[in-house]
Simulated scan of single mutants.
Amino acid sequence: MKQLCLFILSFLGLLSVALCRHREYILIKKLKTWTDAQTYCKINYMDLATIQTAEDLTYLQKKADESAFNSTAWIGLYNDINSWRWSYQDESLNFTKWYPGDPDNAGTGEECAVLRSEGYWFDRYCTYTREFLCFDVQNSTVKYYLITPAKTWKEAQQYCRDRFTDLVTIRNQTEMELLINLMHLSGGYWIGLFRDSWKWSDRSNLSLSNQLAADSLNGEHENCATTNYYGNFEDWLCSTTFYFYCNTVNIKRQFVRVQVNSSTDNMSDVELQRLVLQKLQQILSGLMVDGEVTLTWRKQLNGKVFQKRRGSL
């Protein structure tokens, strides 16, 4: 059965739609580090292999069988430890105050940052509960708030966004000292600093099964993943050398530009996805497609499918 898959990239309310066949793979029997393997795949094919479905795994196993291979090889899954940024508008870091040795990205989950009274940032597990610091912009004046009771980082972010502007962004030492003066505990407070977790090198979304598998990867500083013949993921030091799988799918692209207009700034990303999906279904209803149609949302670097833009497009 032919399968049609759509990868959707959204920016400023416009969507580009690519139509492609199912993934196919090639096993490269050369020992390389993860980074060198990715470079090889990008130059000669598309990227390191992405495995999202049972069908993908079947194709990968087929390639392994053809090469009489039943061991471990690199795939495109990696822990994005260099993606630290601020919650508010995904602002990049121009000022840093990490404690010496941090962020150490130990295990899986130290993807959120706290500010301690010593005046340093520490990376911590986002699921821990802590008091936190919000900021609000009122008539061009920034005000800071220390919030109790303790919440997880995600809960704290939502609380700040609902009632103020966001979790705090710290751009300089002066702002650091203002916040420290608000603190009354030494254990650390959530700030708006966070990073991404495991992701595919070709920017495909993690499926639910991918996410569950990635959650089990917790080796300290082992930030690149392999798969074995049965599709089990394992984390390794990225400097280790393995054979590797590349994506070789031949994409045939067609583009549909969809302008998304909203009368409110409060429409959620999920709601926009639902509305645009209805529009895409109308478009697809006019296409003659042999086989199943699979829709896959492609997120931007900030984790969202859509990016809001004020004013008319």
Rank of each mutant, 00 (worst) to 15 (best):
R253G: 11
R298K: 10
N218G: 14
Q259K: 12
E222N: 15
L206W: 02
R253Y: 12
T248Y: 04
N302Q: 02
K252A: 13
T264R: 09
Q278T: 15
G303D: 03
E271C: 04
C246S: 12
N210F: 01
D215M: 11
V256E: 09
N261A: 10
N250V: 11
L212C: 05
N247V: 10
S201C: 14
T240N: 11
K279L: 12
K299Q: 10
L275S: 10
R298E: 08
D269I: 01
E234K: 12
E271L: 08
N223T: 13
S204F: 01
L208M: 09
D215E: 15
E234V: 11
S209G: 02
L284G: 00
C238Q: 02
G219S: 06
R274S: 09
L301W: 04
S207Y: 05
V293S: 06
R257E: 13
S239H: 14
S239M: 08
T241L: 05
S263T: 08
Q259S: 08
A213T: 02
N247G: 03
C246F: 05
L206Y: 05
A214C: 07
S216R: 14
Y243R: 03
M267I: 14
L237W: 13
N223H: 15
L287T: 05
L206N: 09
L212N: 10
R203V: 05
W297L: 01
V270K: 15
V260T: 01
Q259I: 09
H221S: 15
Q281H: 12
H221I: 13
E292V: 03
L301C: 09
T296A: 08
T248S: 13
C238G: 07
T240H: 08
A213V: 08
S263P: 06
F233I: 07
D235V: 03
L301F: 14
T264S: 15
K252M: 06
T294N: 09
N266R: 12
T227G: 07
L275W: 02
W236Q: 09
Q282T: 08
L277K: 15
S285Q: 10
Q281D: 08
I251N: 12
M288D: 13
G291F: 05
E292W: 03
V305F: 05
G286Q: 12
Q259L: 10
K304E: 14
R274V: 09
K304M: 10
R257T: 10
Y243K: 08
V305L: 03
